[in-house]
């Protein structure tokens, strides 16, 4: 059996299970709550996907096992580092994250389900990495961490992880709508010498093999994700850059407005998927 027919069969089986459970009187949401990441979610709004699958679903069994085991998941090294940094005092204000936010398991719970958000002082979106650095520069009077630094990745993993299992829930409001629109335009725009849009791979052909890789739907509910290729966790923006380069397009910068808009749009497409940070992918 090829992997692809395996996926199709799994989809069928899951549909069947959901159906049977529904007959037995369970609600769909109860079924999804049990193990959302390996099951399809129905999109709340109309767009190019009939059902939403986490990238977990398209990963190899071995990779899934690596993610599922708390000890084996190498992303947890960064999670532990983030937990240690949470209470570490830094900067001229002599504060740590904890000084303002106390217990992260309470104060950061749900944050990952709604970011990136509109940030009024800048009249644009900021994502979690930027929020962390804003806290550092403005509240702690400390230096911002670099995008690819161990610290920023560790803290981003830690903050996202506080929402693990909670469904992504991006709400489109009057404030973030213009940025969501820009993100959507980016998603469907062909770019690079290979002239492909995000939608070509992740909407039209997900689940299919492109050479030895299986295309996912491109959801970002597991970021920062530990990529075996990177041998460390990386941000959503780093992944966007990689995709852009693959189609021979000039990437935007880490932390750029363009990628924040895309991050909002892509995250919205995955509404209902559970936060998996730190996910493991190849």
């Amino acid at each position: 059996m090829t992997p692809i027919s395996g996926i199709k069969m799994m989809k069928k089986m899951i549909k069947l299970t959901v159906g049977v459970l529904l007959l037995a009187g369970f609600s769909t949401s109860a079924v999804l709550a049990a193990d959302g990441k390996s099951e399809a979610v129905k999109p709340a709004a109309e767009f190019g996907l009939d059902e939403i699958w986490s990238g977990y679903h398209f990963a190899k069994k071995e990779t899934q096992a690596l993610q599922d085991d708390d000890f084996d998941n190498p992303g947890n090294l960064w999670l532990e580092e983030g937990a240690a940094l949470w209470s570490k005092v830094d900067g001229d204000a002599k504060k740590s994250c904890q000084s303002c936010h106390n217990d992260a398991s309470k104060s950061m719970k749900g944050v990952a389900t709604r970011y990136p958000v509109y940030y009024a002082p800048r009249k644009k979106l900021i994502n979690i990495e930027q929020r962390i650095n804003l806290c550092r520069t403005e509240q702690m009077k400390a230096k911002p961490w670099k995008w690819k630094s161990k610290q920023l990745l560790a803290m981003a993993v830690y903050v996202n992880n506080q929402s693990k299992g909670m469904p992504v829930n991006i709400r489109i409001t009057a404030e973030n709508k213009p940025f969501w629109e820009k993100g959507k335009a980016f998603y469907y725009k062909r770019r690079g010498q290979l002239d492909m849009s995000c939608a070509h791979c992740h909407e039209k052909y997900y689940g299919k093999h492109i050479r030895s890789n299986v295309l996912s739907q491109g959801h970002i509910n597991g970021f920062p994700t530990y990529r075996l290729k990177w041998q460390k966790p990386g941000s959503v923006h780093r992944r966007f850059k990689g995709c852009n380069k693959q189609v021979r397009a000039k990437p935007y910068g880490l932390g750029s407005d363009e990628y924040n808009n895309l991050e909002l749009y892509v995250k919205w497409r995955g509404n209902g998927l559970p936060v998996e940070t730190p996910a493991v992918r190849n």
Binding site: R190, R191, Q193, Y205, K245, K250
Partner: peptide, 24 residues
């Protein structure tokens, strides 16, 4: 189509520098 145009060198968006003006 998702298929690239292999012998075309205009009409691209944000093509990466080293591929500018070139065909695949």
């Amino acid at each position: 189509t998702i298929m690239p145009s292999f012998y075309r060198n205009t009409g691209f968006t944000r093509i990466k520098g080293k591929f500018k003006g070139k065909t695949v």
